[in-house]
Design a protein around this nucleic acid. Structure first.
Length: 264
DNA sequence: TTCCATGTTCCGCA
DNA sequence: TTGCGGAACATGGA
């Protein structure tokens, strides 16, 4: 479930399981998840070293290793990290496995192969290369910048929130939650939003993302008042009981409450 | 069997 | 120029 909260949870997970452990082997089980780096280069760069620091920007996770560069991780739609100590006989979707001295191993799981691993010299340069906007939870991100980055009036707010080059970190799921809590219809044009609505969106965005991290991005642990766990369960709006509606935007579906989020 | 799925990127079109 | 729809990627679940 890799949007900003999920990736932050992965980052903390990596810190608690895999930092400062000597890497004794790197196994690439599917080349598709490698970006520019080859399996051999990745192996050689990490062998005998340890992960020592992490940084997250939007949905991207960077892991610095000793005397080297950074491992850049992106998770696509179905990626996550899992640490295991047993001898897993068939780690079917752990596309890359980092084995540490001793028994621990960190698996980069990616069922649909939509994620990417790469080596980069400097996260800031990589963030610039990708043209990513500021991280949605960057303490330096203020209301004026948020408003400016949402862009001109013609864009649709749901798409604008998900645009990584504007603000990095929100995807289909969390943009739905944020719009629901801000009571804004997902198809509203940015230009049709009032100043008060922009301000609400900004505050709700920070509140939702922070709360999700606090709940470790587990749907079952999120507040009952959220719609996130209700997408595709046919449950009604937790606020007013109205049946949730689905709006298709391209290949994506926006779930919303037609009563709490009326079209403007 | 058919539809849907948390992301990104690319193409065509308005 | 901006932004959207749709496809593609690869696989599983309902």
């Amino acid at each position: 479930m890799p949007e900003l909260p999920d990736v932050e949870v992965f980052r903390r997970y990596l810190v608690s399981t895999s930092l400062r452990k000597k890497i004794r082997d790197v196994t690439v089980r599917h080349n598709k998840v490698l970006g520019n780096v080859s399996a051999r280069k990745l192996h050689d760069a990490l062998l005998g070293r340890s992960f020592v620091a992490t940084k997250r920007h939007g949905k991207h996770l960077f892991v610095r290793f000793e005397k080297g560069a950074w491992l850049a991780m992106h998770f696509g739609m179905t990626g996550y990290l899992r640490y295991f100590t047993d001898q897993d006989p068939e780690p079917k979707y752990d596309r890359v496995v980092f084995a540490f001295a001793g028994r621990g191993q960190l698996g980069y799981y990616s069922l649909r192969l939509l994620g990417r691993l790469d080596l980069v010299a400097d996260p800031e340069r990589e963030i610039a290369r990708l043209g990513l906007g500021p991280d949605a939870l960057d303490p330096a991100l203020d209301l004026a910048t948020f408003r400016a980055r949402l862009g001109g009036g013609r864009a649709i707010i749901k798409a604008a929130l998900m645009k990584q080059q504007a603000i990095a970190g929100m995807g289909n799921i969390y943009s739905d939650e944020i719009l629901f809590q801000a009571r804004i219809h997902p198809a509203t044009r940015v230009g049709d939003l009032g100043e008060a609505q922009i301000k609400t969106l900004f505050r709700v965005m920070q509140r939702v993302l922070r709360k999700a991290i606090e709940c470790e991005a587990e749907p079952a642990r999120l507040p009952k008042s959220w719609i996130l766990p209700r997408r595709s369960t046919r449950e009604p709006c937790p606020r007013c009981g109205t049946a949730l509606a689905r709006l298709r935007q391209g290949a994506r579906s926006a779930y919303f409450c037609p009563r709490c989020q009326p079209a403007s």
